[in-house]
Design a protein around this nucleic acid. Structure first.
Lengths: 321, 321
DNA sequence: GTGAAAGCGCTAACAC
DNA sequence: GTGTTAGCGCTTTCAC
């Protein structure tokens, strides 16, 4: 491994001078600087981050804990985030919780052990406050994304209640008055302790429409039971809280297990919904990431920020492809 | 930041003893061990990877350079890889090249600067051999995934030639004899210098079928031109080399820009194709990741490994949803 | 303008 | 069985 020592030797200067020249801090004669830079280039010197990070505790790494790897929404957000972070000279370290508090704990520890400056995470439970405190004690900033569970720290959230509202409003105007919201069920969280609440959007229609909210535990659901719930309630419209739930419903439509007359709107605008011309609620990933960058730059990790969504009107049923 | 020194002080032992107790290497009395572990727990001690990695150059991090973040095929592979790596006590660091040799270079340097043990990457060009050499000189193992461009190092590849063969064979048996393969065009690579070659699979049918191969530059393609190529060649069947290209073709079908009589098979079996009952060629991500793990465990970074694909028969046209 | 030296957190060789 | 010590790569203070 080529170290700064090798560069210094090769250029015939001390390590300290090499460091100054390489980083542009402190004094160094032009002549030596040239020699040092040439030596670095010739030896293909790449500074070791570990040595660096050990010295200054600031290491310019953002860690993110992803709760659901099967959801493409996260991936587009991550690659966007990576792009933006690079511009402000941060690296992104991605780890996973898979909706499991135990894995969340591991991931927290991994990120802390790499001494990341900032942790962005989607809480999977409400019982890991201690970990957050450990992170903060280590000088790592922490902020929740997509879900706010802990009041002690800030959050960047999609306005999911607004999303549901927009969907209901659209359906209402189109003459649909018996709606069903298919929402997720968090494995280790009560619906009540999570902000935002999608159901709030539909509740605003209680004087105008009939509606029903059902919660689906995505790791352990009974498809037949869901079909039965839909067919016994007989909604004229369905709103799906995630693209993953939407796939389940589309499959039911395709197999004629539920009526193709039911109108259908789903959260998470993605390329497939666009392709199949399905009406969606689009969360603004770009704005989300820009807000995250703003939080990082300003250090405002205790703010709670909501990102508005918009409805993308396409067709409302799956009758013709 | 709580360091091993704090733990040692708190337990009333030396740093070395604390290290031994914490890692289970070397001698330590049961009594002290208990005290040390208790201290670590009480102080919420999390070992700093940088200190560790500085000492032993082995740091158990695998770096992966992703060439295309818009392709969900990669995401599923990555989350699987992360799972498997965790089992053998490795962390995964994900960086991106976005098909850009310059970004590839940056990503290489980032991974080297974090002194990762292994770099998995999809080459975006054939001119970064120097970087590979730098990595190797730093003690970092390097292996290509999905594309083999450099003969100096090994590769783990999907048998894309087999995939095309399977698709052609299936179509041939179903009575289709005028095929069109829509393949990608690499931004910074000649088709000839990349292994595997999808066109090899279709070439085996040269005595049985008519066929045409067209290459699409995904960042700069002319949709009308592609439609014209298809409509002037008038294939009875189309094979798409990636799920991203498939979306383009499905859109053409949906908009009646090309005939819905054309049979259609695409690479990259995913949940959407399953949902819409589209025939695909399924690459075995699980086997791919398992082979990667095997390479890592055995240290056989110079092997070239091919992973076989399989055809998933569903319907062959988009006429009815 | 430059170099010697300390120290970041950790491990391991080596005394004791 | 335990502690002292050196050193991994780097930055920064402080003499010179």
């Amino acid at each position: 491994m080529i170290s700064i020592k090798d560069v210094a030797n090769h250029a015939g200067v001390s390590i300290a001078t090499a460091s100054r020249a390489l980083n542009g801090n402190g004094y160094c004669s032009e002549k030596n600087k040239k020699k040092i830079l040439a030596a670095a280039k010739e030896l293909d010197y790449i500074p070791n981050q570990y040595g660096k990070a050990l010295k200054d505790s600031e290491n310019n790494v953002v860690g993110i804990i992803i709760s659901d790897t099967s959801n493409e929404y996260y991936w587009t957000m991550i690659s966007l985030l990576e792009d933006y972070l690079k511009k402000i000279h941060y690296n992104l370290m991605t780890v996973y919780s898979s909706e499991d508090p135990k894995k969340e704990e591991e991931s927290f520890k991994t990120l802390i052990s790499y001494n990341v400056s900032i942790i962005l995470f989607t809480p999977t439970c409400s019982t890991n406050l201690n970990l957050i405190k450990v992170a903060l004690a280590n000088g790592t900033k922490v902020i929740q994304i997509f879900r706010k569970v802990y009041n002690e720290i800030g959050a960047i959230l999609n306005s999911d209640d607004l999303s549901t509202y927009l969907a209901c409003e659209y359906l209402y105007k189109k003459g649909y008055h018996k709606m069903m919201l298919l929402d997720v069920n968090y494995a280790y969280l009560n619906y009540e302790e999570v902000i935002p609440k999608r159901s709030e959007g539909i509740e605003k229609f209680k004087n105008l429409c009939e509606y029903k909210v059902i919660h689906i535990d995505f790791n352990d659901y009974d498809k037949e039971a869901i079909i039965n719930q839909i067919n016994s309630y007989k909604p004229d419209s369905i709103i799906c809280a995630t693209n993953v739930l939407a796939m389940l419903i589309i499959d039911m439509f395709n197999n004629n297990q539920i009526s193709k007359d039911i109108a259908f709107i789903t959260f998470d605008d993605n390329i497939w919904f666009k392709l199949f011309n399905i009406t969606t609620i689009k969360q603004n990933s770009k704005l989300f990431v820009e807000k995250a960058i703003e939080v990082i730059r300003r250090g405002s990790f205790n703010d709670t920020i909501f990102i508005d969504s918009e409805l993308v009107p396409r067709k409302l049923n799956l009758k013709q492809s």
